[in-house]
Nucleic acid binder design. Structure first.
Length: 927
DNA sequence: ATTTCTTTACTTTTT
DNA sequence: GTAAAGAAAT
């Protein structure tokens, strides 16, 4: 054991500059704010600070909380920390590190029993929307609907859908209920939760809105019936737990990353994590926060930049503790040109304290900018320049050095399809895409049924997928049974509710139990014998898996094989396996879910949070009046912490619940390994690029309506400033090269809905002198590139020749001065890629339509161009059009299913017409 | 009850 | 121009 050998902290400190060192070695018993602009070594400082706490102050890792913004950031911190602490024997895995949400969920799992929070899983956004829909459909009484309808327009306005300006015309106020906008309501509820306001508290507020208050409490009740917590609940209920009981008294230091993006409840959580302690009449508080005001881009999620001030204020006013503020201003990431440009963008904003970031890189190249004539052309411009960069002689860049950052996710689509054509390999930085696949979702739903007997949503989704004969009528019946068993008529619950506000268990019902009693005919239903049998089978699948899981996880040792076996059992007996059939991709995705589940480590006893002696604290004293049935329940409800026997059986599923919740919180690793083998361009939203960096960054779509986004245009100045900070975050991701582009479209062009982009972004006005019109305008600048990147330029670097080729190809690629689309140099046309897919799909489809005829279809699509070209499908006799060997999809677009699937409906539809109508070659337009 | 055709609304950004 | 919801038709 080398744990006693002390690793010296000095070598670590030696790698820091003066400011960084000041921050790292700052007093650990007063609050510390580190203001770190982009590229100033924020993560480095944070990591060094943790190392300092571990080594110098000898704080055990399990007593340190670190909150990061994403799982990725947490992972990176651990990796870097491990490197620093190599051989010290300090187990960095014991650090309490993760996003606010995941840490909160862990705390709820461990200490939630006292507040009635056991057996909960985290709801996805879709679940939340579903719950709200159920509320609106069936939980609001006619009386309340009448009240809602009588509300003045002003009170309804924040909740009704799509700004339907009731321009006279009667507006059917009489009979119809107002159409409420789910998104808006969820946003409002989320906002309340972000400000730590519970439903019953809100109801008591004087200026509470009746509608919101009603829906909020009904929504919460339904969530809890399912034993689900939404994202905000994780924070809200964690705060409730830790503010009432000192369960976290073991925490000795708290670090918060990306502080500028914390909201009120997160600020309050931070205060609770870092409780002020009085030690020998000295007030102490050990907390370090890191952030940058200019990078605050989450106001839409109720982040408040004011938290910096609030923190200072909180400590000085309430605890007379002065926060130490350290500002880092040396930038190690970007060149001076990129930095100066970014700084100028921000300077346009009034009321901002000037930042003086100093680049540590001398030589530099101007950012490039261009205005293109259409959206497609812009995408081609990006693709062309990527190709140009990686194919420079002795290029300092490969594809993985390049990122394309966009404001809105939908902008990626054009890029994708253009990249497929150009054979530009790319990945979309989005961890969750995998978990939103249909088959993955289905499998996860089955796991949810197993892990959470209350998860009505999951049960309802699973019960008829694969088909078991439960149609909409049967589903509705089950829903009815669920809600009947969920709301007992005894008013004992109301009594408890008054004493213990929002104790979630009060409306608990076991969905699985309900189904069981239906199948045993204890609850009468209108199901026929067939349906009952089908239901029985379904229950048997869930119960069978539950048994296997229990066995697999009962021991203290983790048992991957047994877990895998349980998973397979569920996959097969549920019929999912058969349903997915021979689709190789889907099967692999299910395998991946299994792998993730097995990989997910069961937090062993020592790693988990310390136990907390509940009996030290009073359990609310409740007088119970009512029938004995209710009494038992109340006793059960209040006695949760003491129930060891019951707890044990639940433990097996606790593991599964953690896993499922972390999946929802996007906390799983992306286990794909091919990233290393094939360097790929990253396409990401700006928000997703936070904290990352690349040598080359493209920011397309710099037009009014895109960045700044259209919804901010007529908004307040704050809204515009948030957009500006978005741009700032994007541009400061770049190390060496920055490419900016805009396009303009004509007002009357085939744009639906969205306003056309007519002007370049206001953020660029007046900055032209800082920008170049094309990359490498002269020989010198090209040479700079090589020096800057530390690459040796080729001996025979012929600048003139390179530029000539660049210009010639530019016209060909970007401007497309040839109209022979299939034969443009360097292009793979949509034809090549989709031909094979088309043939496969056409064959399948035609066979399905005419099963008696086993021969291949008479006609297959001859040519289908990919988006963004007009998807025109022509049919030709099959013998004339046998796909050639080269018509396989390039490997680099495996991930890019969107690019191909955008036309999928058209592709699928076209062959469907074959047997009926396509007697002669027929052109199938797509409306 | 499922498939097929028609209509509609939709685009922030994410834990 | 597309998904997703709604309507109509097998």
């Amino acid at each position: 054991m080398t744990s006693d050998e002390k690793i010296p902290i000095e070598p670590i400190l030696d790698t820091l500059n003066e400011d960084q060192r000041r921050a790292v070695t700052a007093c650990t018993s007063t609050p510390l704010q580190i203001k770190a602009g982009p590229g100033t070594g924020k993560t480095k400082v944070l990591v060094a600070r943790v190392a300092y706490l571990l080594l110098k102050h000898r704080i055990p890792p399990q007593n340190i909380i670190v909150t990061t913004f994403t799982k990725k950031a947490a992972k990176e911190m651990i990796e870097r920390l491990d490197k620093l602490l190599q051989g010290s024997g300090i187990p960095t895995t014991k650090l309490l590190i993760g996003t606010f949400h995941s840490i909160s969920y862990r705390i709820i799992q461990k200490y939630g029993a006292a507040e009635g929070l056991t057996g909960f899983t985290v709801a996805t956004e879709k679940d939340a929307a579903q719950v709200l829909e159920n509320v609106l459909d069936s939980d609001i009484s006619d009386k309340d609907w009448a009240l809602i309808q009588s509300l003045p327009d002003a009170a309804l306005a924040p909740f009704v859908a799509g700004a339907v300006d009731s321009d006279g015309s009667g507006d059917t106020d009489s009979g119809t209920r107002p159409k409420l906008d789910k998104k808006k309501i969820l946003r409002q509820i989320s906002k309340l939760k972000a400000h730590a306001i519970f439903a019953d508290e809100y109801a008591k507020q004087r200026d509470a809105m009746f509608l919101l208050s009603l829906i909020y409490s009904l929504y919460q009740r339904r969530l809890f019936e399912n034993r689900l917590l939404d994202f905000d609940d994780c924070l809200l209920y964690c705060h409730k737990i830790i503010s009432r009981r000192p369960v976290l008294s073991f925490v000795q230091h708290t670090l918060v990353d990306e502080f500028q993006d914390t909201n009120e409840i997160q600020l309050q959580l931070m205060f609770e994590f870092a409780k002020v302690k009085k030690v020998e009449s000295e007030t102490k508080c050990s907390v370090t926060i890191v952030g940058d005001l200019d990078q605050s881009i989450y106001a839409f999620r109720d982040a408040q930049v004011g938290n910096f001030e609030k923190m200072l204020d909180h400590f000085s006013r309430i605890h007379s503790l002065q926060c130490l503020v350290v500002t880092l201003s040396q930038n190690y990431r970007s060149t001076s040109d990129i930095l100066a440009f970014s700084e100028h963008v921000m300077r346009q904003q009034m009321k901002r304290t000037q930042k003086n970031l100093v680049s540590q890189l001398q030589s530099s190249l101007k950012p490039v900018r261009a205005t293109l004539e259409s959206l497609d052309e812009e995408a081609r411009w990006v693709a062309y320049h990527i190709t140009h960069l990686v194919s420079l002689p002795q290029s300092p860049f490969e594809h993985s050095d390049i990122a394309v950052l966009v404001r809105s996710a939908y902008q990626t689509r054009v890029l994708e399809s253009e990249f497929v054509k150009h054979r530009v390999p790319y990945t979309i930085v989005k961890g969750r895409a995998f978990w939103e696949r249909k088959e993955v979702l289905a499998m996860v739903d089955y796991l949810r049924c197993v892990a959470n007997e209350n998860d009505q949503l999951a049960f309802l989704r699973c019960i008829n997928y694969p088909k078991r004969g439960f149609g909409p009528v049967a589903i509705a019946e089950i829903e009815k049974l669920f809600s009947q068993t969920a709301k007992p008529s005894t008013d004992i619950r109301e009594q408890i509710r008054l004493k213990l506000s929002d104790s979630p268990q009060l409306n608990a019902s076991l969905a699985l139990q309900t189904l069981r009693s239906v199948s045993r005919k204890e609850l009468k239903s209108s199901f026929g014998a067939k349906l009952l049998e089908s239901l029985n089978k379904f229950i048997a699948v869930i119960d069978g898996t539950r048994k296997l899981i229990k066995e697999a996880l009962n021991g203290t040792e983790s048992n991957p094989e047994a877990l895998a076996a349980a998973f397979d059992y569920l996959y097969e007996t549920s019929g999912l396996k058969r349903e997915l059939g021979d689709d190789e991709n889907k099967r692999l995705n299910i395998e991946e879910v299994k792998a993730q589940l097995i990989l997910f480590e069961k937090p062993s006893q020592e790693d988990s949070l310390p136990d907390f002696a509940e009996h030290q604290f009073e359990i609310p004293d409740i007088e119970v009046i009512g029938d004995s049935e209710g009494e038992d329940e109340v006793i059960e409800l209040l006695n949760l912490s003491g129930e060891q026997t019951k707890g044990e059986t639940n433990d097996a599923f606790e593991f599964l619940r953690s896993f499922l919740s972390l999946v929802v919180l996007y906390e799983t690793e992306n286990s794909s390994k091919d990233h290393i083998n094939h360097p790929k361009v990253s396409i990401s939203t700006i928000h997703g690029a936070k904290g990352l960096e690349w040598p080359v960054v493209f920011i397309p779509g710099l037009g009014e309506g895109l960045l700044p986004a259209s919804f901010a245009l007529d908004g307040t100045e704050d809204a515009i400033n948030e957009e500006r900070r978005c741009f700032y975050v994007a541009s400061t991701r770049a190390k060496t090269l920055l490419y900016l582009s805009t396009y303009t479209e004509k007002a009357g062009s085939l744009n639906w809905g969205r306003k056309p982009v007519e002007k370049q972004s206001r953020f660029l006005t007046g900055l032209d002198p800082m920008l170049a019109q094309m990359p490498f305008e002269n020989e010198q600048s090209m040479k700079k590139l090589y020096t800057l990147t530390g690459t040796i330029p080729p001996q025979d670097l012929d600048y003139e020749k390179l530029q000539k080729k660049y210009l010639r190809d530019y016209n060909l690629y970007v401007k497309q001065t040839t109209d022979d689309h299939d034969n443009r140099p360097g292009f793979v046309t949509g034809t090549d890629i989709s031909r094979l897919t088309l043939l496969q799909k056409a064959t399948k489809s035609a066979k399905r339509l005419a099963p008696h005829d086993n021969k291949a279809p008479k006609y297959v699509p001859k040519r289908a161009t990919c988006a963004p070209f007009k998807p025109v499908v022509r049919l030709a006799p099959v013998e004339n059009q046998i796909p050639t060997a080269k018509a396989t999809a390039p490997t680099n677009c495996i991930n890019s299913t969107t690019a191909l699937s955008t036309t999928s409906t058209n592709i699928l539809r076209a062959p469907a017409y074959i047997p009926a109508r396509a007697k002669h070659k027929r052109r199938l337009g797509t409306r």
